[in-house]
Design a protein around this nucleic acid. Structure first.
Length: 266
DNA sequence: ACCCAGGGTAACT
DNA sequence: AGTTACCATGGG
């Protein structure tokens, strides 16, 4: 059956969550209809004043999207906890609808390999061309390619993507994933440290990219990705170290801070 | 022409 | 263990 499905929540803002820089395959039209592909499935949805509504969705797909949007996590409680730190209170207050998605590991891995020394609009363009070139057709768009498909590609085949020096990193990640030299599926059950060690077996994956994958795919909220923006924030506001109230949710705090300071002056 | 972008690697002290 | 040039590409 095809229908609409609404969720009441005050902690899910689609613009903040889908187009803030943790995912790169979502967009919205003039009518405020968001659309994107994850897990090989296309979704259209809209923002409501009291929540969101999935559009034209099959009932059997609803659980996977609830998982994707991390609806099981109590963001209100985490935001309350963060209010003990004034900077974090302001950042979370401005981004109350920002959630950490639970994305596909391989897609997240390749996406953040591409993100290094790059900017968000250009990252989106490269990933879009990657999907059009190597992904399966999905509706009027393309799914993110499987590791096996990319593993059989060559650097010459990747060059039209204009990913530059990242081509060899993409191929190393795809090949090690396809061969099982890196066990992406196993990281769900690993500790943060074990998962990080596993991801860093890939050439082109360092601390920051690994932290992004651990946070945005595996929801390991201890991860605190140190990008150029966050380095400035930490240097200015937390030179003595991160506040206690972040606890085991440093990654969620990082997202609030990233969004807050990236939007300053806009 | 120069600098920067959700960095990492390799080659240096 | 801690710096630094270099890595493609495109926008400001």
């Amino acid at each position: 059956m095809i229908k609409e499905y609404s969720i009441k929540t005050d902690t899910l803002n689609l613009l903040q969550t889908l187009e803030g820089g943790q995912a790169f395959r979502w967009s919205h039209d003039d009518n405020g209809i968001f659309s994107g592909i994850a897990g090989g499935r296309l979704l259209k949805l809209r923002q409501d004043s009291d929540g969101i509504t999935f559009l034209d969705i099959q009932e059997e797909d609803i659980p996977r999207w609830l998982e994707y949007f991390d609806m099981q996590t109590d963001y209100g409680g985490i935001i309350d906890r963060f209010s003990a730190d004034e900077t974090l209170r302001l950042a979370a207050g401005e981004n109350r609808g920002l959630r950490i998605l639970r994305q596909e590991p391989f897609e997240t891995l390749i996406s953040f390999i591409i993100s290094q020394n790059n900017n968000i609009p250009r990252i989106k363009g490269i990933i879009s061309r990657l999907c059009e070139t190597f992904g399966e057709k999905c509706g009027d768009s393309y799914a993110f390619p499987e590791a096996k498909r990319l593993a059989s590609a060559t650097e010459e085949e990747l060059s039209p993507l204009r990913a530059g020096f990242r081509n060899r990193y993409i191929l190393d990640a795809a090949r090690k994933t396809a061969e099982g030299a890196v066990n992406l599926g196993g990281i769900y059950d690993m500790t943060y440290d074990e998962g990080k060690e596993e991801l860093k077996k890939i050439v082109g994956v360092g601390d920051k990219v690994a932290d992004c994958v651990l946070l945005f795919a595996y929801h390991k909220t201890e991860a605190f990705p140190m990008d150029v923006w966050i380095k400035r924030v930490v240097a200015e506001y937390y030179p003595e170290g991160l506040p206690e109230c972040m606890g085991e949710y440093k990654g969620i705090a990082q997202q609030y801070l990233f969004e807050y300071f990236r939007n300053q002056g806009k």
